[in-house]
Write a protein that binds this DNA or RNA. Structure first.
Lengths: 108, 108
DNA sequence: TCTATATAAAACCGAATGGTGTCATATCAA
DNA sequence: TTGATATGACACCATTCGGTTTTATATAGA
């Protein structure tokens, strides 16, 4: 039922600036201007990155006066987690066993 | 000490063909030809993808007669897992708490 | 109303990406 | 040796990506 993302989450997190933006938004919601202050690239470039994150449903935004506030929407990251989890058995058995034990409550 | 990857792991897994290749190699080592048979794109394209995976240290290869056999080398995926884990608290507290408990043995 | 502020929108650019096809080389097997 | 097989190495192509600058619009406040 979730909107089909134009950019998928893997593509969205492929860029380190975008990963930093997600980390930033994990701490606090922020306007475009506030986000820009943490990076050396232009505001336009920031907005493009935010659009990619938005297309991948990793952030949401709301208007507030003349600013646009972005919020983290991390649910889609669960997909990445799931995918990577498949490989956990190859480097850490203890953890993947625990995961199986714990995660037995409503997976599809 | 690990060789500095030219392509990073996030970029490597951004492409769905490359993710499929990793899944494939998780089941069995495979030659370029064998891998190619699972995809509709050209062998040349396959090789390029494998080079990206190799640059990111996600696969290794060995020569065997006239074939080149690729193996999964999943250690670098731990980095992705770690990064995504930071966000787990936002959608699953139980798991991230457990992770902290279990993972307390030698994380530098 | 006027001005400063925050964002939007568009055109442009070089480099990287994902793909192709062609030709060359190495190796196995008759 | 010869032919088929598996890979390597190029050159080429269209599109996307990450970035820029410029111009326009909306809103808050004095």
């Amino acid at each position: 039922m979730s909107a089909a993302p134009k950019h998928d989450v893997y593509q969205a997190i492929a860029d380190s600036s975008r990963r930093e933006m997600l980390m930033l938004l994990a701490k606090n919601d922020a306007s475009i201007k506030e986000i820009s202050e943490h990076f050396s690239i232009s505001r336009t470039a920031i907005v493009k990155h935010l659009n990619v994150l938005s297309d991948a449903n990793l952030v949401s935004d709301r208007k507030a006066g003349r600013s646009k506030i972005y919020s983290l929407q991390p649910e889609q990251l669960a997909e990445v987690k799931e995918w990577v989890s498949y490989f956990e058995q190859f480097w850490d058995n203890k953890l993947s066993m625990l995961r199986h034990m714990v995660e037995d409550d409503g997976e599809e």
